[in-house]
């Protein structure tokens, strides 16, 4: 048992070291004079990672697939935009983004979490589209023509970059903690069998509401960070169905229910989408649709699943050649 726990400890250390290295690399990368275009790409990817990691907490870990995360992203974006225009410090504005999205998650979750699986998914499409229509018509947010942020001072891309990096690090830490915690265990139990979970003491509604709230807060912050960077937002963008779809696709393609999967998914999506959108506007969604089909049919753990298989394959070859050389 002792051996097992030290082995586990070493495993944890490897993972912490891996994440730490990634964070440091991303942290010092801008000092090596990378192009402003690359900074923009990385920034976009980091914002997507926040939302992707957040969605995974609800969709991957807890098994509640939502097509409605654009609501939180959009509300967060508008809340931050209005806060900044009202003279708030950006961090205060992002806090409001998180709070507004969290509040919305309760209003949406209370009725829709009575529904199971696919019905919940469909209901979230309805909620999300209804919110988009309302936002398109609200006059105090500028309606369909959008909302502009007038921030004083020079545009400093690195400030945005580090904000996104900071929040995505926080998101990954929260996600890793949930995967190890007893709260996370209860979420997984709800995913596997809601009634059986209730039969050993888990309150499924409370678990779902709490993780929804957490995911919404993070997604709202992501929206806020994006809004401040973009300086102009409109309902068809931040509240658009394609935003919900992106937030759903990234973690599933990366690997739902894992810590690394949503990060990989967000990274790939952020980088590929930005590049492909310019060249072939529709090609990336075609690609992601096809990937989604392949993943549902063959590898539910997405990219992390494929990486795992690859590692297993390499290890087998390694072992074979090792035994061969010994023999």
């Amino acid at each position: 048992m002792r051996a097992a726990s030290t082995q586990m400890g070493r495993f944890l250390n490897y993972r912490v070291a891996g994440w730490g290295t990634l964070l440091i690399v991303l942290g010092i990368l801008p000092w090596f004079g990378i192009s402003s275009n690359l900074t923009r790409l990385l920034f976009t990817a980091l914002v997507w990672i926040i939302a992707s990691v957040a969605w995974n907490l609800l969709g991957g870990v807890t098994g509640q697939v939502s097509f409605g995360f654009a609501v939180f992203y959009g509300l967060g974006a508008y809340a931050a935009a209005m806060g900044i225009n009202g003279g708030l410090h950006p961090l205060a504005a992002f806090t409001i983004s998180g709070l507004v999205a969290a509040l919305a998650s309760i209003f949406i979750g209370l009725p829709t979490f009575r529904l199971r699986g696919p019905y919940f998914a469909i209901a979230t499409i309805g909620v999300s589209e209804a919110v988009r229509v309302v936002m398109t018509n609200l006059s105090f947010t500028g309606g369909a023509s959008g909302y502009r942020i007038a921030e004083h001072g020079r545009f400093r891309p690195l400030e945005h970059y580090y904000t996104a990096l900071g929040f995505s690090a926080v998101a990954v830490v929260i996600s890793a903690w949930i995967h190890e915690s007893k709260f996370g265990l209860s979420l997984q139990a709800v995913r596997e069998d809601e009634e059986a979970a209730a039969d050993i003491g888990v309150n499924p509604l409370k678990a779902k509401l709490m993780v929804h709230l957490l995911a919404a807060t993070l997604t709202g912050i992501a929206g806020g960070v994006y809004a401040r960077y973009a300086a102009y937002i409109h309902p068809q963008g931040v509240f658009g169905f394609h935003t919900s779809v992106a937030i759903l696709l990234m973690p599933i393609i990366g690997g739902a229910g894992t810590v690394a999967g949503p990060v990989i998914g967000g990274f790939v999506y952020g980088l590929v989408q930005e590049e492909l959108v310019a060249a072939f506007p529709q090609f990336h969604l075609l690609l992601y649709g096809a990937l989604l089909i392949v993943i549902i049919l063959f590898e539910p753990r997405g990219v992390t699943g494929w990486l795992g298989r690859l590692r297993g394959f390499i290890e087998r070859i390694w072992r074979k050649s090792a035994t061969a050389s010994v023999g």
Binding site: G63, V65, G117, P118, A121, V245, I252, Q282, F283, L285, L286, Y288, G289, A290, L291, L292, I293, I296, L297
Partner: peptide, 17 residues
């Protein structure tokens, strides 16, 4: 099931694009 829902969703994305 969610699997069938997501499968059909993937197909929709493909057809649409």
């Amino acid at each position: 099931t969610l699997a069938s829902l997501l499968l059909m969703f993937g197909l929709w994305l493909v057809l649409q694009n």
